[in-house]
Every structure is written in C-alpha cells, then in structure tokens.
C-alpha cells in the first residue's frame, strides 16, 4: 500500500498568548509542533505500515521553510519519505487555496491508496482542508476517524469517532481519511531515525509552484475567497457570585441582583 499523510506545522497553542492590542497570536519564541490531529493521522498510517509489509508512508507538508523540522520529526516517527510544498506564492492561502496546492501535489505523486489528514489544525480550527482535498481529487472521504482496518481488495473499515456515537464504515480506496487525536496512543520519534532524518538517509523533496504547475489564480492570499473581517481575543466570562444565607435571603439577593443587572424589571 502507498499511504500519503498531510501534516501542518503549527505554533504550540498551549504556550501561545494573544497580543491584547492587535488580537493576533504572539508567535515569537513559541515552539512549533506537528498539529496534534495530523500526528494522530500519521500514527494511523504508521500502524498500517507496521502491520502490512511493503507499505510506504509519504508525508506532505505545506508551509514555510521552517516546516522542515516537522517533516524530519515525521520521518523519525517512521515515515519513509517527505515532500515539503513551499513557495512565497502560497503565502496567505485560505483553506480553498491550500487544498488546491496540496491536491495538486498529491496528483503529482499519482500512485496512492489512501490519503490521511488530521481533522483540523489547532491554529485555524476549520476542519475544511481534508474534505476539500478529497473533493479536488474526486475520491471518497471518511472524516473523524480513529482507526483503520485493511480488508483487502482496496477496501478499508474505518472507525469514526463522533460526539455521541461510534460508526464503523467501509470505504473503497483510493480515499481520504481525516483523523481525530486523543483516542489512541501516539508513538515517539525513534532516536536512531532522528539522526538518520538529519543525515540524508530519507528522501525529502521540495516542491514549489513551478514543480506543481499550478495556476497563480488558485493560490495565495489574493486568490483566497475567505476574507477575515477581524480577529479578537474572546472576552473573559465574569466569574459567578456565591450567595450565602437562608433560602429566603438568597432568593431575595438573587432577585435584587437580577433587577440590578436589568435582567428582570419591577412591574410598574
């Protein structure tokens, strides 16, 4: 089997702070990580590789040059090769433009059985890119997956993890699967492979707009149909008030407060 995993490098939002004036992320000094759902997607692919001899895993990462670190980490975890899709022309792409770029990279690879994506990225949280890629490639998609079983004859059984139920669905490849993190343990990078990943043992390709032969009107900020109106940090919710006293006293306090906040109005 030939598996493709799309990953994104994101700021570690557990350590990120918002600039209170501009409402944008302060990225200075914030470590970058592989997006958690993407890491889970990679784990699902690597498990399939472990269980099926001759399976290869190729990682695709669209991003700036620094994305190299994310790709090397994926190789250390067990991916066989990687493609970094990077070009100034891609900067500012929204989900529509990003899906155009990544799907054209996948089309260039041509031969594949499954494409994996994380459900959504922790910086944008749109959960759109995976499904959009599937549409561009005109292949079936299964979203919110937890695990995948190989049934043979290009058929796969996918366990979907939804808010209040699990679904087992069958899909015929080539197909795209988006994966949810936090359900299955994820392997650590292998230490030996870390050193190999940085000494040229694995193939790492760099593809730009030129290699992908993609139209300028399908990529980048200018071609992105999404317009961000404004960004702002959410207002902090006020903490509640604890009422004390007898039931009657507390009910009186409650009504007084609600009147004070103009939630209730005294009848004239």
């Amino acid at each position: 089997m030939k598996l493709i995993v799309c990953i994104k490098q994101v700021p570690d939002t557990t350590e990120v702070k918002l600039d209170p004036k501009t409402g944008t992320l302060i990225r200075d000094g914030v470590p970058s990580i592989i997006n958690p759902d993407d890491r889970a997607a990679l784990e699902v692919a690597l498990k399939m590789k472990d269980a099926n001899l001759g399976t290869t895993v190729t990682v695709i990462c669209m991003g700036p040059k620094q994305a190299d670190a994310a790709v090397r980490e994926a190789l250390a975890m067990g991916a066989d090769s990687a493609i970094i899709v990077s070009d100034r022309a891609f900067a500012g792409s929204d989900t529509w433009a990003t899906a155009n770029v990544i799907s054209s990279a996948i089309q260039k690879i041509m031969d594949y059985d499954l494409v994996f994506c994380g459900r959504q990225a922790i910086d944008g949280d749109t959960a759109q890119v995976g499904p959009q890629i599937a549409e561009r490639l005109n292949i079936p998609q299964v979203t919110y997956a937890r695990s995948v079983k190989v049934l043979g004859d290009s058929r796969y059984e996918v366990c979907r993890e939804l808010d209040d139920e699990q679904q087992i669905v069958e899909v015929t490849g080539p197909a795209l699967i988006t994966v949810v993190h936090g359900l299955e343990p994820i392997r650590y990078p292998d230490f030996r492979r870390i050193f190999q990943a940085y000494s040229g043992v694995f193939e790492v390709l760099n593809w730009s707009q030129e290699e992908l032969k993609i139209d300028a009107n399908k990529i980048g900020l200018k071609s992105s149909p999404t317009n961000v109106k404004c960004t702002f940090p959410p207002e902090l919710r006020k903490s509640g008030i604890r009422l004390e006293g007898t039931n009657e006293e507390m009910v009186k306090q409650l009504f007084d407060n609600m009147l004070g906040e103009h939630i209730l109005k005294r009848r004239a």
Binding site: A76, I194, A197, Y198
Partner: peptide, 9 residues
C-alpha cells in the same frame, strides 16, 4: 537541528 529534535523527544 538533530540535537534540538533529540532534546525535544
């Protein structure tokens, strides 16, 4: 970079 990745891991 390899040593950085090693430390992180």
């Amino acid at each position: 970079k390899a040593q950085e990745q090693f430390r992180k891991t």
